[in-house]
Nucleic acid binder design. Structure first.
Length: 256
DNA sequence: ATGGCTTAGTTCCTAAGA
């Protein structure tokens, strides 16, 4: 089965691209981020017409996450993370589908840094880590899939210098990501492409796509029970080059 | 040489993204 994470950067603007992707790739499970739509404007009918059941956690204007399942409706386990009741950002949706536990994650960007947005990013990371530890303790096949807004290693970026001051590459961001991995999660893309150079995001600006000036920030973290079933992981890079594309490309794992 | 772009909402500008 193919499980995808895809930051669509506005599901309304991206709907033709998304429907096309579903038809061409027929992924089994798709985690979406940056819906940028409220719950009542999510295009559920179009998704259903494409053959997918869906759960979504929307927000007007920005954020918003969803999980789609081919020929099935995901069963909701949680929306939002504990630990900060006043946080109203829609960034976490956890479901169960076909015996798999799946979370769609949109971690805060954290720019500008330093400042309250960067502090929020680190707090959100801690809250995610608490949930992730509980998920591991259940010893089930589990996938944390999403836009983590972290460039884990220097070779995950086209230019260390260009990103040096960015929140995505700060030591604190990387340390938080490493602490998460150290719980026992497998970074599937890293495992399959251990020397880096695999990008999931190319900025709209400065001809980044044309120069292949990208970086890797969309990640799929597998519990040991899911990692045992991993057969492949990669990026459907070609979709970044299409008309009115998202600035992210679909990123995926195959599990037995 | 991340400067430039794109999306959505409060639209003919602003906020947010990364």
């Amino acid at each position: 089965m193919k499980l995808v994470t895809y930051n669509v950067n506005g599901i309304k603007a991206r709907l033709p691209r998304l429907v096309e992707y579903l038809a061409e790739q027929q992924p089994d499970i798709v985690c979406l981020q940056e819906l940028k739509c409220s719950d009542d404007t999510f295009p559920a009918a179009d998704i259903e017409a494409a053959g997918y059941g869906a759960l979504w956690h929307g927000q007007k204007g920005f954020n918003g996450v969803a999980v789609l399942a081919r020929g099935a409706t995901p069963v909701e386990r949680a929306r939002g993370l504990a630990g900060e009741p006043e946080d109203e950002h829609s960034r976490y949706l956890e479901v169960e589908v076909d015996g798999l536990v799946v979370a769609s994650i949109y971690l805060p960007n954290g720019n500008p840094r330093p400042g309250p947005k960067f502090d929020y990013k680190l707090r959100w990371f801690d809250r995610l880590a608490a949930r992730a530890a509980a998920l591991l303790a259940a010893e089930r096949p589990t996938v944390l899939a999403g836009d983590f807004n972290v460039i884990p290693f220097d070779d995950d970026s086209f230019s260390v210098r260009a990103m040096q001051e960015d929140a995505l590459m700060q030591p604190e961001s990387r340390a938080a990501y490493r602490r998460l991995l150290a719980q026992g999660w497998t970074d599937a893309l890293r495992l399959r492409h251990p020397t880096g150079g695999t990008w999931t995001f190319w900025d709209y600006q400065a001809g980044a796509w044309a120069r292949d000036a990208g970086f890797r920030i969309d990640h799929l973290l597998l519990s040991p029970q899911a990692a045992d079933r991993l057969t492949d992981a990669d990026v459907d890079k070609e979709y970044r080059g299409r008309e009115r594309a998202s600035d992210h490309a679909p990123t995926w794992v195959r599990l037995r």
